[in-house]
């Protein structure tokens, strides 16, 4: 199940501001807590955070909302995806995630293949694209497609699994559910 969270609405509910900018750490922390509650109540597999009606996103708030959310979600079973990001918002998120060695998937538009922001290896990026374009695959499938040895492919997929960027079902690595 996909649970879409409109961050502008969360912002309006979390802090008393007439603006739609995600700025400052206290604001970010308040928004993140609301997002965590929303995800928890929805019992969803994939949480889709929609930034499309958000104005400015500063670095401090990006760290509080996205990076801290991912840190908290690491131990869970669900996936977090972002959508509706402007170029500036993408840059801010990429910057803070690299600083914390984190990575997140971004959905450019509904129906398109997601891509990654943050600190990840080129191999993991390629593996992520492969899984999300082709569908569930084994280590052997990826190794054959990319012409990698087994352990190289395994390492890339495990990196993705460690960041909750693919699902793991026995021998298969599955794309993040988007429907």
């Amino acid at each position: 199940m996909i649970h879409t969270i409109q961050l502008d609405r969360i912002l309006q509910g979390a802090v008393d501001t007439p603006y739609r900018d995600l700025v400052t750490r206290p604001t970010g922390a308040a928004v993140r807590r609301s997002v965590e509650s929303s995800i928890s109540e929805a019992h969803c597999v994939t949480a889709l955070l929609d930034f499309s009606a958000v104005g400015l996103l500063d670095f401090s708030c990006a760290d509080e909302v996205v990076a801290q959310l991912l840190l908290g979600a690491r131990s869970g079973k669900g996936h977090v995806l972002l959508m509706g990001l402007s170029e500036d918002q993408s840059e801010a998120i990429d910057h803070v995630l690299r600083n914390r060695h984190l990575v997140v998937a971004v959905l450019p538009r509904p129906g398109e293949t997601p891509f990654l922001l943050g600190a990840t290896s080129p191999e993991a990026r390629n593996a992520f694209r492969f899984v999300h374009e082709v569908g569930p695959c084994t280590v052997a499938d990826l190794a054959q497609e990319m012409n990698w040895d087994h352990f190289f492919a395994l390492s890339a997929l495990q990196e993705l699994a460690g960041h909750r960027l693919v699902g793991v079902d026995r021998d298969y690595y599955r794309p993040i559910p988007l429907q």
Partner: peptide, 20 residues
Amino acid sequence: AKATMGFAMALSEACQNIVE
């Protein structure tokens, strides 16, 4: 045009230095 957002971000971070 995209410089505007970065400018506002820089201002936001500089102001937060006071608050924090």
